[in-house]
Design a protein around this nucleic acid. Structure first.
Length: 255
DNA sequence: ATGGTTGCCTCGCAA
């Protein structure tokens, strides 16, 4: 089963690129983030024409996540547990075959002296607590999405410039390690040790042309999923097209 | 070099 994650930065604007990429890459499940629309406005018919169903958690203008799949989703949950008052569309989880898959859009958190940053850290802690619950089930799962976390200095083009940013500062990376160190596997790093491999390049200042990016889109696997991991990579091809998202897909294959 | 870009039912905000 091929599982991918892609922050599309508006599913409406990105639909032609998304359909082209689905036809070429043929993933079984795709975790989308920043669809930036209500569920009612999601392009279901067009995706159906290319063989994909969708589960959607939408929101007007901002955020929004979806799970695209060839086979129907089962046992869908539409929010990250732990805060009933959180109305932002950032989490969706379902089962496909015997694998549990979540699409995650973690808060950006800038600026760091704001409620946005406190919300980011609280969200990371809720995700860690939920991962503990999932791990107790001892089943394969994949938590995939835009984590808005740069795990290590080698995952950013200029670690000094990003030192105090909400995506990289010590407190953020410590919280992220608290999640990974429960026993999860970063699918990309299981196959690629080389530094400076990125999944996001800012639209501004020619970052893509200079290959000055960030690796912030991750697939974190439970031990039972990691045992079945046979391949993973970043697919840079959609980032080079006209009307590209600022993120590019990351994927893994489980046998 | 405090620049620059994209998407949102906008006239600023989020990324």
């Amino acid at each position: 089963m091929k599982v991918a994650t892609w922050n599309v930065n508006s599913v409406k604007v990105r639909l032609p690129l998304l359909l082209d990429w689905l036809d070429a890459a043929k993933p079984d499940v795709v975790c989308l983030q920043e669809i930036k629309c209500l569920a009612a406005d999601f392009p279901l018919m067009e995706l159906r024409g290319h063989g994909y169903r969708a589960e959607i958690v939408g929101q007007k203008s901002y955020n929004g996540v979806a799970l695209l799949s060839k086979e129907p989703a089962r046992d869908v949950i539409t929010a990250l547990p732990g805060d009933g008052g959180d109305s932002q569309a950032r989490y969706l989880e379902a089962s496909f075959g015997d694998i549990r898959i979540a699409t995650i859009y973690l808060p950006n958190g800038n600026p760091v002296d704001s409620d946005k940053y406190r919300y980011k850290l609280a969200w990371l802690e809720r995700l860690r607590a939920h991962a503990v619950t999932l791990l107790h089930q001892e089943r394969p799962f994949v938590l995939a999405g835009d984590y808005n976390v740069i795990p290590e200095p080698e995952d950013v083009y200029d670690p000094v410039a990003w030192r105090e940013d909400a995506l990289f500062r010590t407190e953020t990376r410590r919280a992220y390690r608290g999640l990974v160190n429960l026993g999860l596997t970063d699918a990309f790093r299981a196959f690629h040790a080389e530094p400076h491999r990125y999944s996001f390049w800012d639209y501004q200042a020619g970052r893509w042309q200079r290959d000055e990016g960030l690796r912030i889109d991750h697939l974190l696997l439970s031990p039972q999923a990691a045992d079945r991991l046979v391949a993973a990579d970043i697919d840079k091809t959609p980032r080079d097209k006209d009307k590209a998202s600022d993120h590019t897909p990351v994927w893994c294959e489980l046998n």
